[in-house]
Each structure stands twice: as structure tokens, then as C-alpha cells.
């Protein structure tokens, strides 16, 4: 029984990272109706820069680097829009190109090494369950962040503008809501949150240049499990995915645990009606 409890708690702690990655995914999907494939790459850049610089300055530099990359993606998005591109899959493809380029840059500059740092050496023991202190800090931080974001979206005028822009772009633009500004802001938020996720991964499990695509896909999986509409659902989706992964690692095998995020994505996509409205009446 204690084993199950340990798996669940540990899974929830590691799932918090997926929850954090799910937030930019759901924000992006709701406001721009696309996916920023580069979110995982922002995480990698942030981790790599922070690992090199070190200390508190490293944290800031990592976040700054991730934000700069996201700003670049926002410029590409704006340029595509200015050129008359309204195809959401093209935005996604461009972010995919950026993700590939960033991962390759990291490989070239830092090589194949893994980026990992340990802030704590001894695990905490709570009621017989051993916990990694960094995991607890990650969880608390992410819970706080998602809670704050939820309040921002639901109870401030900025949040109301975001929801309006998401629900009806033309209508929002007619009501003088800066739709394009909100979309650019969403890309930047993706950089910030992706970068933060990268820093937290750096101090817990670590990552290397192959991580970005997996991180992006995990974030997306977490975002869609309970519906992509809100960051709060994404948070619980991330926890569910982490717990499923920990249980799979404990009771099945490492192979199944590695497949959990992808199986989640496949399962949800094949059984849900996700994005079906785009097909029913969606004309280009």
C-alpha cells in the first residue's frame, strides 16, 4: 500500500512539469488555434544557458534566452500573418522548424551531454515516503503559478480580453481588443513558461538535446486529457500523466513508462471529439 502511495506522490510531483508545459499549449491552442512545437526547445535553451552561467544569474539568463527565442517565434508568426498566411498548420510547421534549429544549435555548442544540477542531496521523508525536495518545490511553484494564471484569465480585464479573442477573433477585434497583441503575448508566455519548465527539469531529472519534442508532446498530452480549454484542466492532466507514468514504471516496465505520454495523446485523440468542429464547418 505504501508503495502505491509512494508511486502516486512521486508521479504527481514529476507530473507537475507536464502540467506546467500544458499551460502554454492550452493558451496557444485557445488563442491562436495552433501549437508552438518549440516550447520544448525553449525549455532546453533555458536549461542549457542556466547550466553554463550558473547561480541566480543563470536562472535569469536561462529565462531570458527562452524568452528571446519565443520572441523570435512571435516575429515569424507576425511575418507569416503579414504575408497573408491564415493556415494554422503553417504556424505549427514554422515553430517545428525553430525547434529543430534550436535543438541543433544546443547540440553544436554544448554537445550530447545531459544538463542536470542538484540543489539538494538528501531526500525528505514524509510518513515513510521518500521525496525529492526539488520535486516538492517544483510542485508548489507550479501550483502557485497555475493558480495565479487561472485567476488572471478568469477575473481580470486582460483575462477577459484573452477569452474574448479566443472565442471570436473578428468580434473581439471589432470590440477594439488587440487580438494580434494577445496572440504575440501568448507566444511570449510560451517562452516564459517553457523556459521555467526547463529550469525546473534542469534541477530535477535533467535533460539533453533530444528532449524538446518529447517535452512538447508531453505538454500537449497533459493539455488535452481533460479538455484543452483551461490551464487548470491542463494542470490536473499533467498530474494524471505523471501518476500514470510512475505507476507504469513501478508495476509494468520502463518501456511502458516511456510510452505513457504518447499513449495518452493517441488514446485521447482517437477517442475524443477533439478539434472536430474544425472539420465539420471549418473552411479555409
Amino acid at each position: 500500500m505504501l508503495a502505491i502511495a509512494e508511486y502516486v506522490v512521486r508521479g504527481a510531483l514529476s507530473g507537475a512539469i507536464y502540467a506546467l508545459l500544458a499551460v502554454p499549449m492550452s493558451l496557444m491552442f485557445v488563442t491562436v488555434r495552433t501549437i508552438d512545437f518549440a516550447v520544448g526547445a525553449y525549455a532546453l535553451i533555458a536549461a542549457a544557458v542556466c547550466w553554463s552561467v550558473g547561480g541566480a544569474l543563470g536562472l535569469a539568463a536561462g529565462l531570458g534566452a527562452a524568452m528571446a527565442c519565443a520572441a523570435f517565434m512571435a516575429i515569424i508568426f507576425l511575418a507569416l500573418k503579414r504575408l497573408g498566411c491564415e493556415d494554422h498548420i503553417i504556424y505549427a510547421l514554422a515553430s517545428f522548424g525553430l525547434a529543430t534549429a534550436l535543438a541543433s544549435l544546443v547540440l553544436w555548442w554544448w554537445g550530447t551531454q545531459a544538463f542536470v544540477r542538484d540543489a539538494f542531496s538528501d531526500p525528505w521523508s514524509v510518513g515513510g515516503i521518500r521525496l525529492a525536495p526539488q520535486g516538492v518545490i517544483n510542485f508548489a511553484l507550479i501550483l502557485l503559478l497555475v493558480g495565479a494564471l487561472h485567476l488572471l484569465i478568469q477575473h481580470t480585464s486582460l483575462g477577459r480580453m484573452m477569452r474574448a479573442a479566443a472565442a471570436n477573433q473578428t468580434g473581439a477585434a471589432l470590440a477594439s481588443i488587440p487580438v494580434q497583441g494577445i496572440q504575440v503575448g501568448t507566444y511570449l508566455a510560451g517562452g516564459l513558461l517553457g523556459g521555467l519548465a526547463g529550469l525546473l527539469v534542469l534541477y530535477s531529472a535533467g535533460l539533453d538535446f533530444t528532449a524538446p519534442l518529447g517535452l512538447t508532446l508531453s505538454g500537449f498530452g497533459a493539455a488535452i486529457i481533460f479538455g484543452i480549454g483551461s490551464p487548470l484542466r491542463g494542470f490536473f492532466g499533467g498530474l494524471a500523466m505523471g501518476i500514470a507514468q510512475a505507476l507504469a514504471a513501478g508495476y509494468a516496465s520502463a518501456m511502458v513508462a516511456g510510452m505513457v505520454p504518447f499513449l495518452f495523446v493517441l488514446l485521447v485523440l482517437t477517442t475524443s471529439r477533439f478539434g472536430e468542429e474544425a472539420l465539420a464547418g471549418g473552411r479555409p
Binding site: L217, G258, M259, F262, V265, L266, E276, A278
Partner: peptide, 22 residues
């Protein structure tokens, strides 16, 4: 998955590829 939006279909193929690889 093809009844879904093109973006969702793309992600499904990515997930499928990853599962096959593992």
C-alpha cells in the same frame, strides 16, 4: 484520427512514431 483537425492528426502521427520507436 483523420476526423480531427489537421493539427491533431499531425500530433497523433508524432505520438504514433514515438510509440513505434520505443
Amino acid at each position: 484520427v483523420t476526423r480531427l483537425s489537421p493539427l491533431a492528426t499531425a500530433l497523433a502521427t508524432l505520438a504514433l512514431g514515438s510509440v513505434i520507436e520505443i
